[in-house]
Design a protein around this nucleic acid. Sequence first.
DNA 1: AACCAATTCAATGGTTTTCTTGAATAGGAC
DNA 2: GTCCTATTCAAGAAAACCATTGAATTGGTT
Lengths: 222, 222
Amino acid sequence: MSDHVAKATLYDALTQAAKALSNGRRAELVDVLAQGERPVEELADEIGQTIANTSQHLQRLLRSGLVKTRRDGTRIYYSLSSPVVHALWRTMRQTAEEHVAGLQQLANDYLGDRSKLRTITRDALQARLSDGDVVVLDVRPEPEYTAGHIRGAITIPISDLKSRLGEIPAGAEVVAYCRGPYCVYADDAVRLMTRNGLDAARLEDGFPEWVAARLPIEGRTP
Amino acid sequence: MSDHVAKATLYDALTQAAKALSNGRRAELVDVLAQGERPVEELADEIGQTIANTSQHLQRLLRSGLVKTRRDGTRIYYSLSSPVVHALWRTMRQTAEEHVAGLQQLANDYLGDRSKLRTITRDALQARLSDGDVVVLDVRPEPEYTAGHIRGAITIPISDLKSRLGEIPAGAEVVAYCRGPYCVYADDAVRLMTRNGLDAARLEDGFPEWVAARLPIEGRTP
DNA sequence: AACCAATTCAATGGTTTTCTTGAATAGGAC
DNA sequence: GTCCTATTCAAGAAAACCATTGAATTGGTT
């Protein structure tokens, strides 16, 4: 093999990870998988695609090594191969935020106006956790809470929140969190709780970042 | 716009940076541009493509915001928009190294056997720089040396090295460096010098990593 | 103005991606 | 074994991507 061809082949291989993440649907999948393992059908539902199509995207991720699978009876659970994959996704996001034209507008279109939402940083939340005067509320779908959550958090998925507001301990401030900076669940939760007279704020970014910062968690996530 | 469409559009936009880097030729371009700005014709030569094709790849990078241009007379110089772009390229590379099957084999095919090359870490080199008993040799093409190089390094492009071996100060150990871990120039230089009785080693990775580590440089790079 | 050099543009054809649809497979329950 | 469920496979069409070719632009030089 000529040097020229060998070089081209090597650089083609070096871009495989980028190719795997260069599709919006696969990016959504990685965003969900960063919360923990999930079976194909649930993933298809999360990204709003057919099962066949989702399966093909997942196999693309599998071929490039970014995810792995585990069979349990008739179900096949997908999960990220390692924290490096989530780090790549975060770096990619950051690069897009800084350099891709029009991204801010698209983010606003999807996320809505966040200027009126009170947010709290990871460090601030951790500091207040030890004081115990704050309720941490996980509003992600139940399987993601089960797979792992912030230590001491309670779970009320956003879809149930309206009818289960009464379960939230009264008196303390509520901090809601979800999947990350581009997830709207916590936004919706804070708006709903505020309208109902609760003192609510949103944790900046989400659970995977909490894990990456090595802050205390509990649940199945190792 | 429905929420569903807005979300898909946002995630599509978030993958733009990955899409831009998801092609081997564009990855090679970023690797070269990480050394400093270069005009189109030289870039085409570096990646072994036609000028028209190189121009189109560069404009793809430009549209996604990863590079910027500067006109000087009849030439147009391309450069990376910010250090974030190089960080993305490094993270991408690292992810591929850890997860893409067969990458090690392809790297060996192109880089050859490195086991007999002595290498020195960045920190070790910096420590010895103050002692002054080491010659740092930049074997990249001249324009890249001019754009910026390790403080105190001398330049002999790999293409000229054989006929200019006499210029290397005798007596001291020589440390050669080039573009990064996937660049063969320093490898070739160390082999050539060793065959000629010089005491030579290769700096692990290359100039962009030296810059990223905020070690001393000189030349035009800010 | 005429010419030249560097770069971009536009059109073409071949390849790869992506989604859809419907059939095939593999493990579990009866 | 037969049925059921979760997932994968296979085939096809529309769109995007990529290298090639030759023409068009833009700024500089004579």
